[in-house]
Design a protein around this nucleic acid. Structure first.
Lengths: 140, 140
DNA sequence: TATTGTTATACTCTATAACTATA
DNA sequence: TATAGTTATAGAGTATAACAATA
């Protein structure tokens, strides 16, 4: 039955997509945990190229604002960011401290060295992969 | 600086791989939750084509055995599987009940209908994607 | 003694709801 | 009254460690 084959193939492909995502996440986690930074904190740090309101970070991380509060608490406790009111006094702006900047550079280095994705594929293949995955993500 | 570009591209690609995996997982979750089955339970059910020892399920799910105990408790409570000692009396064999089989068929149907991956791509493209992702997963 | 599974506990990541302060 | 952030709480998914039964 070719129908069953098609179905099984597409299930395998789905599983492959999931496992690849998990592999990339695991690589990221390994790289940043070596610097004693939990992955969610590392993600936030790497996004903080410019000082940013907490709500902005929430949308970049696509998570709830209350979770950003939690992350920010942790980052401040570690001396990696400061929290200061913005022009609109409701807004709290997060800014990397010098220690935060130094750590961000280390993390950027660590995650770029530890890149299963780019070391496995040629630039052309990376383009192909990117195009295919974009098609999936663009599905309704 | 072309180096920065390459680095940024590979970071974007990594993010794309992660997001695609999350998309597929979210589609799976939506499909099975419509049948009142939490995703981890659904995964277990779909793997139970044949009666299987718990340790076998643990390795297929790549999770700890103690977690399989938890899943099995839940599946038994729902009347979807039975737990019975095997030839080696240390082993507990999980077998789908008739209700479990019926649900498995419904779930298989639901997840195959709801397939962003295969509806977004032609068979040839699916082959390409599969090959590229396999290369990533085969990295040391 | 090594292996299979269970129990109790705890951890990580994240959301929801109710709230405060500012606009 | 709408918006930004905070607090307290809770839930999903999963692991670790100590243990029991069988081999």
């Amino acid at each position: 039955m070719p129908d069953d084959d098609a179905e099984e193939n597409s299930r395998n492909l789905a599983a492959l997509v999931v496992r690849s995502g998990e592999r990339v996440k695991a690589d990221f986690a390994r790289a940043v945990l070596a610097h004693d930074v939990p992955p969610p904190l590392a993600r936030a740090i790497l996004l903080l190229n410019e000082p940013a309101p907490m709500g902005c970070l929430a949308s970049q991380l696509s998570c709830d604002q209350s979770y950003v509060t939690r992350l920010a608490d942790d980052l401040v406790k570690r001396g990696l960011v400061t929290r200061a009111p913005g022009d609109d006094r409701r807004v709290q702006v997060l800014t990397l401290t010098p220690a935060g900047i130094a750590l961000k550079n280390q993390l950027a280095q660590a995650v770029s060295v530890d890149k299963a994705v780019s070391s496995a594929l040629t630039p052309v293949e990376q383009e192909q992969l990117s195009a295919l995955l974009t098609r999936i993500l663009d599905m309704p």
